[in-house]
Nucleic acid binder design. Structure first.
Length: 873
DNA sequence: TATTCGCGGGG
DNA sequence: GTGTACGCGAATA
């Protein structure tokens, strides 16, 4: 089942399933006779609705409200005729103070939920004679008498099409505008092939290997015809959701071409803008944007196609500058050919990302687990899929779900907030042989163990066997009512265990699918806790979310106590669901044995299904602060062998605004500290780097800092190094100027001006024999990150630089400046702040009395150097 | 130190 | 379509 929608036929809704059969053929099934409905609770419901032509039926039914432990009660089930009129009926009731339930469920989901069918799953359909009142593209069209789910693991084969467009505008500095700039080329990639072709290039210019069109309008029409004929299930591309497709649609509008390339010609393809994103709707097909999936699934520095293709596929992208496109388009046949190859390459890369990295697998698994349609999984968040899932589960137990109230974002809740996990204050220093134990699926296990559920929460009344949580919330025990949440989670965790076990024996595609399934089960079960804490959730309850985190904190604190008091080991750190324990006088195997033994014994003492597991060993562990540490970690792989890894948490060794020297020095020093356990050696390594820097022995390349030009230089309000360099380059009439969106690299050279004005093009600096400002690199690039690391080892800045005894380096740094930089003359406009001579407090503006709070006088500070060396011009 | 602002991807 | 509604780093208060 790929997609579901409905159409009105003779003012009655007809539901449609767009799907595939096992052979890969397309099917469209029509279902009539299902009506929209919702629930209402309050005074005079019947009177208010009587005579309303939209209301088909009002009946009293017995249902349970989900929030708070309570018995079922009579509420009204209101059945309507037309799904589209639900809102007006609902709002009429809401205005009269009547509570509604499930009055905001999209009609297709109402039906899917009630029928027990879901996205990407198989449907058993009893068919009768086909009827196609609406022109639908499908190999077979059937009228459905009934539908039901069938369990069948394997997926139907899908057809994929990738696309990329090129446009040309007169103003090359800006992004093209769909209102005026035409599409000149469209590349398409097919999998499997279309009419024997793996790909096609459409263009409004003739050229080798290109399908030419006279006008843009003809090309757009060909595009529509090809999509309809090829009939793909999945449409991909790189950022097509927010660029190519909305752009094509706008051009079609301008050219009076009907955007009919969905599987129903009476429903046009649409792009609805919300916030700064478009949502694309192509009936019966799935838009799966490679860019969006990569962005969600990988943590990369940048997400440009060139960068993504290189890091995920190992494929280089032939570079065509965005500003070159116009020239190539108007240029020689060779230029045009280059543009065509470039265009095609982009759709090929997007397709390769999707197929070679199996981008859809995870989303298909989530779709099957949650019951949501694949398209909704791709663009929606966790909340949406949990809500669809809960609707089924709660309904089948006789509960109703509230309609989402659009309450104005409650501020006090934000302020009070929700207490999270417990984080131990890390024990200072470099620790060796630290065993890491953690709680397996902590929050889901707590929900299950303590029977936490909206349906078991005691809101009032008394129950002497209620389970009280640290936050004060009380839940009835399972013997009174087994909560829906605990049951869902038990089932999911159980299922995940089974899949993981089966997986070991499987291989190839099946194994991959199983892996995705267990991952989806993990993702889903971990998301329930966050759901209750989310303000906009239909069942939002800080009481429930707080009960879960409260029990988490209680559990980890009890565990720490057991380890320290019961076993005499020192717990050096812990966060939410993990504890790090220092094991002394043991080798790796010994420490592992102690860890496993403790985990097992403590698990036995913990209630319910809460389980503490041995995870790994940190051969060396250096905490900096809470949430920030580094470690040399070893873990048993699936083959039972130890696998080592350097772990960094909350510590970046690579950052865009750091030069290569910084990243490299950090990596080296971390390695020396963790692997060689030699702080002295790390300090001397650092000093060597500083010394080489002072001696001018570091290549400029390693000192290159890069920043992105985000707007026109004149629109920057502040003074920034990379922008100042742009201005200088413009004056020098540099040929290849970086444009908006390009990254520009610079080094900071010595001189009397403020820092931002001393940014230089490394090539220019080299030519003119300019020296880099070593002092800047030491103070602003090397010291800030490294000082933090060394201070965790008890080495302060003075010691690090060899102040005191050796008198070497710090002196050298100061002398260095003495020689090279004359006392800077500061322009008043460059003064960036003031520093107190006595207490060293700094501020942007001094108090009006002109002296610091402590009574000390102020020094000026500017970006060109330290305060005591300033003179104001 | 908190809060607001602006951009990402794409031509 | 019984609609929806980001997230993170830099700039600024």
């Amino acid at each position: 089942m790929l997609d579901v929608d409905y159409v009105l036929v003779n003012e009655k809704p007809v539901l449609r399933i767009f799907g595939k059969d096992a052979k890969g053929g397309t099917v469209c099934g029509f279902y009539e006779g299902f009506s929209p409905y919702f629930y209402a609770l309050g005074p005079n419901v019947e009177e208010r609705l009587s005579g309303n032509p939209q209301v088909a039926k009002i009946e009293k039914v017995s249902r349970c409200l989900p929030m708070g432990y309570q018995e079922p009660r009579e509420i009204y089930k209101v059945t309507l005729r037309n799904p589209a009129r639900t809102v007006e009926v609902r709002e009429g009731l809401v205005a009269a103070g009547i509570k509604t339930f499930e009055a905001d469920i999209p009609f297709k989901y109402r039906w899917m939920s009630d029928s027990g069918i879901g996205g990407m799953k198989w449907v058993k359909a009893s068919e009768s004679n086909a009827l196609d009142t609406i022109s639908v593209i499908a190999d077979s069209k059937v009228q459905l008498k009934s539908v039901s789910a069938i369990e069948r693991e394997e997926d139907a084969p899908l057809k994929y099409m990738s696309l990329d467009i090129e446009t040309v505008s007169d103003d090359e500095g800006k992004m093209p505008e769909a209102g005026k700039d035409p599409v000149v080329m469209i590349s398409l990639v097919f999998e499997p092939a279309y009419r024997g072709k793996k790909h096609m290039i459409l263009s409004t210019r003739r050229g080798e290997g290109v399908e030419p069109s006279e006008k843009e309008k003809d090309m757009l029409q060909s595009f529509v015809d090809i999509v309809k004929e090829y009939d793909p299930d999945v449409i991909t591309g790189f950022n097509i959701s927010n660029f190519d497709i909305p752009y094509i649609l706008e051009r079609m509008r301008k050219n009076s071409v009907r955007p009919q390339f969905g599987r129903c010609s009476s429903k046009y393809v649409r792009a609805d803008k919300f916030a700064n994103n478009y949502r694309i709707g192509i009936t019966g097909r799935i838009v799966a944007d490679s860019y969006q999936m990569v962005k969600r699934g990988w943590n990369l520095k940048r997400y440009g196609l060139d960068h993504v293709a290189k890091s995920l596929l190992g494929e280089e992208k032939a570079d065509v500058k965005k500003s070159e496109i116009g020239k190539l388009w108007k240029g020689s046949n060779e230029d045009f050919g280059r543009l065509a190859r470039y265009c095609l390459q982009d759709s090929i890369l997007a397709m390769n990302l999707l197929l070679k990295r199996d981008l859809l697998d995870k989303y298909i698994a989530l779709s099957k687990i949650s019951g949501s349609l694949l398209q909704d999984i791709l663009e929606g968040g966790e909340t949406q899929r949990i809500e669809h899932y809960l609707l089924r589960e709660f309904n089948s137990e006789g509960y109703v779900i509230p309609t989402k109230t659009d309450k104005k974002v409650v501020v006090e809740e934000n302020g009070a907030g929700l207490k999270g996990g417990f984080v131990l204050e890390p024990k200072k220093g470099l620790h060796s042989m630290v065993v890491v134990l953690d709680f397996k699926s902590m929050y889901p296990s707590l929900i299950t163990t303590y029977n936490i559920c909206p349906t078991t929460l005691l809101t009032d009344g008394y129950a002497d066997d209620a389970v009280e949580t640290p936050g004060g919330a009380r839940f009835v025990p399972k013997s009174v009512r087994h909560g829906i949440m605990p049951r869902i989670l038990e089932r999911m965790m159980d299922e995940r265990g089974k899949v993981k076990k089966q997986m070991r024996a499987a291989k190839g595609k099946t194994r991959k699918a199983m892996d995705m399934k267990q991952l989806a089960l993990k993702v889903m079960s971990n998301a329930f806790y966050g759901y209750f804490g989310y303000q906009r959730a239909k069942i939002h309850s800080l009481e429930i979310a707080g009960a879960i985190t409260g029990l988490g904190r209680q559990t980890i604190q009890q565990t720490v106590k057991m380890i320290e008091e019961g076993y005499g080991h020192e717990v050096v750190y812990g966060d939410t669901d993990s504890v790090m324990i220092k094991i002394t006088d043991s080798d790796l195997e010994g420490a592992e044995k102690i860890g496993r033994d403790m985990a097992e014994k403590i698990t036995k003492k913990l209630p319910g299904i809460i389980e503490l597991e041995f995870e790994k060993i940190y051969k060396r562990f250096l905490p900096l602060t809470k949430k920030r540490y580094m470690a040399w970690s070893v873990e048993r792989g699936s083959d039972g062998q130890w696998k080592e890894e350097m772990v960094m948490k909350g510590i970046e060794t690579v950052r865009r605004d750091w030069c290569e020297l910084t990243s490299e020095t950090m990596r080296q020093i971390i390695e020396i500290i963790l692997k060689q356990d030699d702080v002295k050696d790390a300090v001397s390594y650092f000093r060597d780097v500083v010394k080489s820097l002072l001696d001018g022995k570091i290549e400029m390349e390693k000192l290159l800092i890069t920043k992105t030009i985000t707007k026109k230089p004149e629109s920057y309000l502040g003074i920034q190094p990379h922008v100042e360099l742009m201005k200088k380059m413009k004056q020098r009439r540099v040929m290849e100027m970086p444009g908006i969106g390009d990254r520009i690299g610079y080094v900071i050279v010595r001189g009397p001006q403020m820092l931002s004005k001393r940014a230089e093009d490394p090539v220019y600096a080299m030519d003119k024999g300019l020296c880099v400002d070593s002092r800047y690199y030491i103070d602003n690039q090397l010291l800030p990150p490294l000082e933090r690391i060394f201070s965790a080892l008890g080495v302060n800045k003075d010691e690090l630089l060899g102040m005191g005894k050796q008198m070497g380096l710090a002196e050298a740094i100061n002398n260095h400046r003495e020689k090279d930089a004359p006392v800077p003359v500061v322009d008043a406009r460059d003064v960036s702040g003031f520093i107190c001579r006595t207490c060293h407090k700094s501020c942007r503006r001094p108090p009006l009395i002109g002296v610091c709070e402590c009574g000390g006088s102020f020094l000026f500070s500017s970006s060109s150097g330290p305060a005591e060396r300033m003179r104001l011009s």
